[in-house]
Nucleic acid binder design. Structure first.
Lengths: 225, 225
DNA sequence: GCATTATTGAACGGTCGCGTTTAACTGAAC
DNA sequence: GTTCAGTTAAACGCGACCGTTCAATAATGC
């Protein structure tokens, strides 16, 4: 009758569900609070009742919207991964000598990865990956693989521009990031304190080695068989 | 009165404790079984009762010998770290060209680190490090740092022998191992399958880059400021 | 208004598992 | 043998917490 046609009962998929709709703002509050608890205290140590209280919501609402503790955890992970997707720019540094730009990039990557929340997040995801491999896969897609892709493309562009001589950009991307992290990553994960000084030395060292292998002034470049 | 003098009550520290001694063989059975459960199912998911049953021991015995679930976990970690201390040889490869030897070492290190038990062990330790930092510290001491030390010394010797030109052996050790692991480490931790082919490419690539930076034929060597 | 669905608070069933207790037994030291 | 202490089996107290149920209330579509 009205514009757009009457919603016939057969078109269930398009028909607006009757009754009171799920409260979206509560949903995000729940997910946000759940994420906080899960990634700070761990899955098992997180009580749904506490999440409900902190989110200002009834426990039944959580079960109504998510059905399950695991489902809530999954939703929290997906939410966090979604946030992660926006955090790779790499485009701020387009000028200057290649060496300085690589140091900048190394520092940016390292700063991003060494945030305490990130360390904790990784710990939790790794632990839960055993019971549900899909969680680990989702994280790899949203984080590390996406980053490798972006940085690999950057290296390929630098090679086209004649600033680098990288034959295998994806491999080189891994190598550079791995060297920047060095053992700092491991040490943080296992609770040791890592000084800014050590990190800087690692990053500069990584650039040194990287340019020795892939820089234009390298006489015995990798890939020149 | 008798030979050796009567054990006076004051010399408590030297006096053998009266009564039946703690059963040492049961203790190791408990620790071994506990380690298996903890590192396969996680701390929270491990029931002491199950450990007792599998170790062929009464639950009370566990509480008598360790007092606490956490203490048992700590004992299991220490035990595993102790085992780990013997696993670094690196001495098998003394002959042949430096390139081939480094590939061998890279493969050995990678093989050691990518064992499923090791991945699981690391996951658990990382998760528990948050509630007890000493656990993470113990692991770092027994594993990664020890390994870095050993490999760094190897690089220093190779440099003295004129086979490499490494100015900072510890940093170079980190760089090489990090490149060998590349992203494979991460991927395994998050449940992705890593092919032997990828691993080999990473190792060969790491040797390429490493020798470009630290090899004797490198014209623009790292550290030659 | 009426039907439908969400939200809430409270209470409950049920499971799991830590840590303790008790009483009987076993082994080592004197 | 006597004494002291570890080992055992069974049972229990107890707390935590998941997931459900119920009745009452609120929000939305018709």
């Amino acid at each position: 009758m009205s514009i757009g046609g009457s919603p016939s009962p057969e078109k269930k998929s398009l028909r607006r569900k009757a009754g009171r709709p799920l409260d979206a703002v509560k949903r995000v509050a729940i997910v946000e609070t759940a994420a906080h608890h899960f990634f700070h205290n761990g899955y098992a140590a997180t009580a749904i009742e506490q999440v409900a209280a902190d989110a200002g919501v009834s426990k039944v609402t959580i079960y109504n919207q998510f059905g399950d503790k695991r489902a809530l955890f999954t939703a929290a992970v997906e939410n966090e991964c979604e946030k992660m997707r926006g955090h790779f720019s790499l485009e701020g540094t387009a000028k200057g000598p290649i060496r300085a730009r690589m140091v900048d990039i190394g520092q940016a990557i390292y700063a991003f990865l060494s945030r305490p929340e990130m360390i904790q997040f990784e710990r939790r995801i790794a632990a839960e990956t055993e019971v549900d491999p899909a969680i680990g896969a989702a994280f790899l897609e949203a984080g590390p693989w996406r980053m490798k892709q972006a940085f690999g493309a950057w290296l390929a562009r630098a090679t086209e521009a004649g600033e680098l001589a990288v034959a295998d950009p994806m491999l080189a991307a891994e190598q550079f990031v791995s060297m920047c992290k060095g053992m700092g990553d491991l040490e943080r994960r296992f609770g040791a304190h890592v000084t800014a000084d050590e990190s800087d030395r690692r990053i500069v060292g990584a650039v040194d080695v990287f340019l020795a292998a892939y820089g234009m002034s390298a006489q015995n470049r990798v890939g020149d068989r």
